[in-house]
Design a binder for these strands. Structure first.
Length: 292
DNA sequence: CACCAGGGTACCT
DNA sequence: AGGTACCATGGT
């Protein structure tokens, strides 16, 4: 029977950490609630002592979309068991047990991370918010709730001018986003098809997009497609690898990439997310919901 | 007010 | 091949 709420009984799932961990950029914290739009559905989540409670604006007969997005079915302990025995990783996990990876829409993920380069997470959130408000379709929200918008489609953005995009404060990233939108809209880049390719093939396809290098490609592979071996190396993870695994040595990026590919195992991407979170929260000043 | 931010590219030896 | 300035903008 269609209902506008449900809950997932799930263990070892830290919703706050997960939704503020810099993998998705549209979650707004309202007290104990987390509000956002997934595809074209407004949703609010709350962590309870038995799991995660969810409420939508429109009654749902099938909650698979949310179950999939949150990766409820994942055997989380089995992931942790594939990690190497390692004091640094152990400390990172201890810092935030229950941090999870989401499974996002590929286009939204690709576009968001094109906008992420040399931006702080709060700024990325701001750019994405403006972009959605300006070019996204409005979605149904409960009475009394602020308006929300879907993430704008590649087709919609492909029809924009570069200056329209620059008005969303994305600066030099505007031509990159526009080019990506045009490649997806024209079919030159088949995002659906990447799911059936090997991680190497999919990465090479993504890197063809202007403004997308190894790091952004790996973010999309990990956060949208679930290629668990993808290991995005940003400034924080670079710092983690250098300080924790190669202290007092000058190690160049190619060697760090090689190390990450061989050392962390089949779920390296999960390990990466723990190292990222660990480095960002190690010296907390103001640690609260996505802002640090 | 310098410095930095979930980078990538073009242009230099 | 390997290093480096530059891109635009806002937080700290």
């Amino acid at each position: 029977m269609p209902a506008n709420e449900t809950y997932f009984a799930v263990d070892q799932y830290d919703l706050d950490a997960t939704l503020s961990s810099g993998q998705a950029f549209r979650w707004k914290q309202k007290g104990k609630n987390w509000e956002s739009v997934i595809a074209d559905r407004w949703v609010v989540l709350q962590q309870t002592d038995v799991g995660i409670h969810a409420r939508t604006a429109v009654p749902q007969s099938d909650w698979t979309w949310l179950w999939h997005y949150l990766q409820i079915e994942l055997d989380f302990p089995a992931i942790l068991e594939t990690f190497p025995s390692d004091e640094h990783l152990a400390r990172a996990i201890l810092q935030c047990a229950g941090l999870r990876l989401l499974r996002q829409d590929p286009w939204e993920c690709l576009a968001s991370f094109i906008l992420s380069s040399t931006k702080q997470i709060v700024q990325i959130q701001q750019i994405v918010s403006v972009l959605c408000a300006r070019f996204g379709e409005s979605v149904v929200v409960p009475a009394g709730t602020e308006p929300w918008f879907a993430f704008p489609s590649a087709n919609r953005l492909a029809g924009c001018s570069e200056s329209e995009l620059r008005e969303c404060k994305m600066g030099f990233r505007a031509p990159y986003l526009l080019a990506a939108a045009k490649m997806v809209a024209s079919g030159e880049l088949d995002l659906q098809g990447l799911a059936n390719r090997t991680v190497i093939e999919a990465r090479n396809e993504l890197i063809e997009v202007p403004g997308v290098g190894r790091k952004i490609a790996d973010c999309v592979l990990l956060f949208a497609y679930g290629f668990q071996e993808a290991f995005p190396i940003d400034v924080w993870v670079m710092k983690a690898l250098r300080e924790l695994y190669f202290p007092k040595r000058r190690v160049k990026p190619p060697r760090l990439i090689a190390f990450s590919e061989s050392y962390f195992g089949p779920n390296a991407g999960y390990a990466q997310q723990y190292l990222f979170h660990y480095m960002r929260t190690r010296h907390p000043k103001t640690r609260k919901g996505g802002t640090i």
